[in-house]
Design a binder for these strands. Structure first.
Lengths: 182, 182
DNA sequence: CCTGATTGCGCAATCA
DNA sequence: CTGATTGCGCAATCAG
């Protein structure tokens, strides 16, 4: 990296991107978003947010959804999907009813596939972004570490130089202290 | 890493872990590995290795595998799996035949589920580790940044002090240079 | 309500 | 062979 003296770190944080040649070489309907440069603000505003409900592949409340004509589709993993059961959601307060029972969408519908494909693209994009973010953080840490070592060396040099000058001055003060200037 | 003045960064890199309270609150057969402290060496030896073959959910060579009694199982995503086709793998040189045609394992066998479950556990563990690694890298970068600012301030102070002493010395040298001491 | 972005999970391929 | 990694798709949820 280019470092003129002892203070050129944190560059390329929100401007340049080193690798950018990430995976994304798949063969399955890969639209491959052009890997947008990702705004610098996005870089810092990243907090995992671990206080999520976290109930994915489990029933949890019998979740009424009357839509499972899973024919010839890929049929993801072992996710829920119960059948025939009244939906009282509209009559309950939002804070009390089950997850709302979304709009029924059969898994073999064109819309379903369209949504899935779009989400897959979004997921790839998001993960690519995350990967780049991690790489940048790693590089930033390395740069800062180098920078730090240089700065510490410099501090050591300056301190020693100061000690030398102080010693010289003290010597000169001993015999004839004629100058009033400090 | 002993420091006495302006060099106390990179601590807790391989010793302490702040949060460690990660997701992992699922309800689906969650063995939840105790989040081993992860050796400090593992932290640095991390290179994505993007030169992989990368051919997962696609046929790619008709890949002979006579094992798909996918009954009542979860049946993952749209992965390959062709049927009825002779396997000439044993008669071809290792460098010419298809991916070896592994040992046939039906998806509803107990062994399959056992392997899957073990892998799922390993995956969770690995991802947890990766998450912690990322968090640590982020914190390290922040610490290094603070440290850097302090060091730069210190360098500025020392430089100024040096200038002052140099000025004083030059003043003393002008009038009577009687002392031979350097 | 809809759409894109995130995130945890399981799967399969591959690495070590 | 076994555990560790990694890319992917799915579904739930978040954020506009």
């Amino acid at each position: 990296m280019s470092d003129s003296r002892v203070s050129s770190v944190i560059q390329e944080w929100g401007s340049s991107y080193p690798g950018q040649a990430h995976g994304q070489v798949l063969g399955s309907s890969n639209q491959a978003a052009p890997a947008a440069p990702m705004s610098p603000l996005d870089m810092m505003s990243y907090s995992p947010c671990q206080d999520r409900q976290q109930m994915m592949g489990l029933p949890y409340l019998s979740y009424t959804t009357s839509c499972l004509s899973n024919t010839s589709s890929s049929g993801g993993q072992n996710h829920h999907q119960t059948t025939s059961q009244q939906d009282f959601s509209p009559f309950l307060l939002p804070s009390l009813r089950a997850p709302v029972a979304k709009r029924t969408i059969s898994k073999d519908s064109a819309e379903y596939r369209l949504r899935r494909e779009r989400n897959n693209i979004a997921v790839r994009k998001s993960r690519d972004k995350a990967r780049r973010r991690v790489l940048l953080t790693q590089q930033r840490a390395l740069q800062l570490q180098e920078e730090n070592q240089k700065l510490q060396v410099k501090v050591g040099q300056l301190s020693q130089e100061l000690d030398t000058l102080r010693h010289i001055l003290s010597q000169r003060h001993l015999p004839g202290s004629d100058e009033p200037g400090l």
